[in-house]
Amino acid sequence: MGKPMFGALLFGLLVIPPVRHLMESVMIVHMLVQIPLLILAGFLMAGFFRKSFQRFWFVWNENGVPGMLLVVIIVLYWLIPRTIDASLENWSMEWFKFISLPFLAGIPLGDSWGKIGTLTKSIIMFNLIPMLGLMAWLYIDAPVRVCNNYLEAEQKMLGWGFLMITAGCIIYMLQYAFTDRSDAVSE
């Protein structure tokens, strides 16, 4: 069984209503588990779509930068508390979440990640680190409930979750920069 099959299975699993409801009932799981898993599902499926639409990817995403831009825009969009709220209240938004994250973020990510150079990757990482740190601050320190559907305590927990991820990214970058990778670095 190949990676795309896994991706499709994962996507199928996430769509099942009880799984979906369970995940969305807790803010931190919704934001930091469901959303990343949806992206991962798309990422795993990317191989299949790359084979099927080779010409499309070649024309539109030759160096990986347009794809990454799309990924960044979609991810940024789903970091806004209001959109999360809307996805719980509005069916079309929920649909859009389940389509956009795997197909407009995950798949382009799968196609682009191998194409972009080390420099672009590191730019993305070092934008991600302060951004995630800021999300942590925003959720921990927000003076009001930013989502109507979740309590403030949940919001704080999500903030600490973001902080853990920020710390994780920093540790990852440290080990990346301080262990030998003479072969892996490209333009």
């Binding site: 420099l119 590191s122 730019i123 920069a177 262990t179 030998d180 990778r181 003479s182 670095v185």
Partner: peptide, 19 residues
């Protein structure tokens, strides 16, 4: 930031790591 990310990349490419 861009400038230093590039210098970091270039150093790692030639010498293997920042260490």
């Amino acid at each position: 930031l861009l400038f230093y990310l590039d210098s970091g990349r270039a150093i790692m490419k030639k010498y293997g790591s920042l260490a």
